[in-house]
Nucleic acid binder design. Sequence first.
DNA 1: CTGAAAGCGCTTACAG
DNA 2: CTGAAAGCGCTTACAG
Lengths: 347, 347
Amino acid sequence: MTTTPASRARVTLADIAQACDLSRATVSLVLRGSPLVHADTRAKVEAELKRQGYVYHRGAANLRRKVSSAVALVINDLSNPFFAEFAAGVDEALADAGYVTLLGSTGESVERQQAVIASLLEHDPAGIILSPAEGTDPSRLRSLLGTRTPMLVFNRELGSDWDYLALDNVRGARLATEHLLAQGHRRIAFFGGHLDSSSCRQRRDGYRAALADAGIAVQAQWQIECAPTRLEAARQTGALFVRDPAPTAAVCYNDAVALGLMAGLASRGRRAGHDFAVTGFDDIPEAAVSAPPLTTIAVDPRARGRQAAELILQRLHDPAAPAAATIAPAHLQLRASSQVTPNGDTA
Amino acid sequence: MTTTPASRARVTLADIAQACDLSRATVSLVLRGSPLVHADTRAKVEAELKRQGYVYHRGAANLRRKVSSAVALVINDLSNPFFAEFAAGVDEALADAGYVTLLGSTGESVERQQAVIASLLEHDPAGIILSPAEGTDPSRLRSLLGTRTPMLVFNRELGSDWDYLALDNVRGARLATEHLLAQGHRRIAFFGGHLDSSSCRQRRDGYRAALADAGIAVQAQWQIECAPTRLEAARQTGALFVRDPAPTAAVCYNDAVALGLMAGLASRGRRAGHDFAVTGFDDIPEAAVSAPPLTTIAVDPRARGRQAAELILQRLHDPAAPAAATIAPAHLQLRASSQVTPNGDTA
DNA sequence: CTGAAAGCGCTTACAG
DNA sequence: CTGAAAGCGCTTACAG
């Protein structure tokens, strides 16, 4: 009977032990660098490990030790560069800490999110980092998770008693709004996003606070809701101009919306940064190369990913500590799209 | 002694069996839907599973059954939207097939790639999908992998006897070049990328073939190498114009390079799509919103991800089949950046 | 239809 | 310094 290369049996501790005339226990000690074993024995074992191409079966070891070396990362939209950067940061920091990342993506579907998490739980992750799909029901999530597996929620608040890593949405939107006020704008819209999302509400709160500080009453027609995508934003552009006097600037929910609005403005014969001022939120790479380049709020998603990984690892270390909310900083990234006054002068 | 919620002991088959006054074997049969067990028994067990919040430990089952339900996905650059989309497609298709994705990212470092793969192998993946870091040494990779774990290589050829999923680089670059020729260009550069990368060589081959078919001899100064990043491309822009007559158009290695070149042109007082024609490769989302929008070669990275997942799953099914190379289609996505003639007329 | 026993690849007390 | 035995949570023949 011929054995194809790909089906060769696995080399185990027992094989090494037998070849070295030792017990599996001793080989196991070598593997984990125990100082107990004699230097000669160690050398003999290590040579044999290499010779036979042994690869450690961490799953078997974890089973015996009742530990896990995996963390699940559930992302709502990996095709969004913001979350892709976040995921890269998470994976980087987890790998450095000796953990492997179990990836799951939900495509913003709560049903898929339930299924994905259920499946990941069967692989016994030590913890979960979740960037929740829009419309996530915390109680359904809680009954799925139980209380054995700690979770860190990123970006969208879910309440319950999970750890939470947030962007400073209020402050970021306030910075954007204050910048437009400083350019002389008085009629400033808040454009895009859905108010049932906590991040959208927080950003709008920051916008409102800045206007209130400037003594400006927010007009209802300055609040335009739409799905946070480029396409929907482009479609909703007209809603800004149905009444006179129309806004001269818009604080957008995020960069995707801002880029869509810029496209929508162009198709109506207006130009962002020329006769209308626009700001975004996220600072995705496209923001720097759009026409004109987009003034936005930078939140460094890769650093947020590393931070999320560190927070969940900390939680594994101290399961009993009370759940904590962490607010990550945001800062204004100035570019041409907002460098224009209400009269069309370039600042 | 109080037990904190997070440290509650795991519910196992044995707990369920004991509560139902059955053997673990019977509960195991229920879990996997065996028709052998009596309907009443099944109902009783399922109620108890739910009551105790049992979660299946797939790792333990896999250990016993000597199977794996994980596939490792190693990505060189997750912050590149092209690879992020690819990863999303892989994860989607693997999840549908009941596999979990073990993520690893290398940041284009061959050293990190070795370390990441070594670590992932300890988690016993059934197979590996690798988007190799630049400069990967196939023989080092082979000695790391052994012959037990099948691998699918994406995007960059590594030789050896691994399965390989490629983009149709030759045809894509040919399409881009033929398009520029049709606009009337005769002096066309091939800009960016390193010739030690197989994808770069293939794209340049397609470019050369198109020029040869048009009876044009390629000039040495039309070949500008640089790292495939926006920044390096912007820095190298001047190299296009050191000799007269200078090229009037450039086929770029990829979109990042093309966007960098467009920025470099702008800073030299030239404008892509106005007095110089540019094409990219990949069709990343930024290509549609750049100024001007970038003509490029679309390869549908998400579909490529799904395809990669299907190929590796197929390989798991039939380990003995000969290694196969698969070429995925590429098509021209026409936009403004190339719609200009050598004389500056807009086509 | 259900159970007792062995075993997947590892680690952990406990002896010696 | 090294080994024999038990056990992590599951599944798989084999009995009955």
